[in-house]
């Protein structure tokens, strides 16, 4: 690229970025419909999200809105909900303590199925592109790095499994759990001198996990007439055995994402040997 083209291109890009920046920042200081200016750090949650999400129990919210809907906009301090206490309330409509999980897996579970499919297709594309790449040898790592990697790998794996098993209680879920597992395998690839990652086994595990996801949805279809319905009784909120099939789906998604990303990284390092 010549110098004049580079300068005009960067000037146009800088102008666009400044315009977008002005637009974004003035959106933060817009007044709410009551005439108050709302700064960023004391956000009133009931002003920003819809009523259904705050009550977390869609049947109650529909009944409330049917009886006194317009009064919500004027009298917002009196939003009733059943008092939900952590560790005691049983058999809610969807019993997970983490709000993001309840949206991602239960109320919008079909979109998560689409997201998992997109990840699957991108890893297939990566594997097809690494057709003729040969392996380049890395320099042999020193004795400190070799010992350290072998010692640290089980703890990283344990941390990843902890993240996706407690997906309905603490922040996290299936996707960061799988990414941490893949980082553990990346540490082994770089830190030991001859580590062969068996890509055949990991591809089989990934495919089986994807089939299990759709299988859980089909069981919900046969038992409750709706794909990906929650057919296991939701127990007490805050316990590990709560939230029905949300926990099962996050375990499946965590295993699938972990196997996928490890396969992608290992194929980039070693090249595809199937010819």
């Amino acid at each position: 690229m010549k110098k004049t083209e580079f300068l005009t291109g960067s000037f146009i890009a800088l102008t666009l970025v400044v315009l977008l920046g002005v637009f974004f920042f003035q959106a933060l200081f817009q007044p709410s419909y009551e005439g108050k200016v709302m700064p960023i750090d004391n956000v009133n949650l009931k002003d920003r999200v819809s009523l259904h999400y705050v009550l977390k129990n869609v049947n109650d919210a529909s009944k409330y809105l049917a009886t006194n809907g317009m009064r919500y906009f004027n009298n917002r301090s009196s939003v009733p909900s059943k008092t939900i206490t952590f560790g005691k309330t049983k058999n809610l409509e969807e019993g997970s303590a983490n709000e993001v999980t309840s949206i991602v897996v239960n109320y919008r579970g079909f979109d998560t199925l689409g997201e998992v499919t997109v990840l699957f297709i991108s890893i297939i594309g990566l594997t097809m592109l690494i057709g003729g790449v040969k392996e380049k040898k890395l320099r042999m790592p020193s004795v400190i790095v070799r010992t350290g990697s072998k010692f640290l790998f089980p703890f990283i794996l344990l941390f990843g499994v902890y993240i996706f098993i407690h997906g309905h209680l603490t922040p996290g879920g299936g996707f960061p759990g799988g990414a941490v597992i893949a980082s553990g395998f990346l540490l082994l690839l770089l830190g030991l001198e001859n580590f062969k990652f068996n890509t055949t086994v990991s591809k089989v595990i990934e495919s089986l996990a994807g089939v299990t996801f759709v299988g859980i949805g089909l069981v919900g279809l046969f038992m409750k007439n709706s794909f990906l319905a929650n057919f296991i009784p939701t127990g007490t909120i805050g316990f590990l055995y709560s939230a029905g099939m949300v926990a099962l789906i996050y375990i499946v998604v965590g295993i699938k994402v972990g196997a996928e990303l490890s396969t992608g990284v290992a194929e980039l390092k070693e090249g595809n040997k199937n010819d």
């Binding site: 993001v100 996707f175 960061p176 990414a179 893949a182 990284v265």
Partner: peptide
């Protein structure tokens, strides 16, 4: 937003740089 923060740290600052 702690969920997105954990995901971005694990994928963006770890695996993406290695790839």
């Amino acid at each position: 937003a702690p969920d997105v923060a954990i995901t971005e740290a694990a994928i963006g600052a770890g695996l993406s740089t290695a790839i």
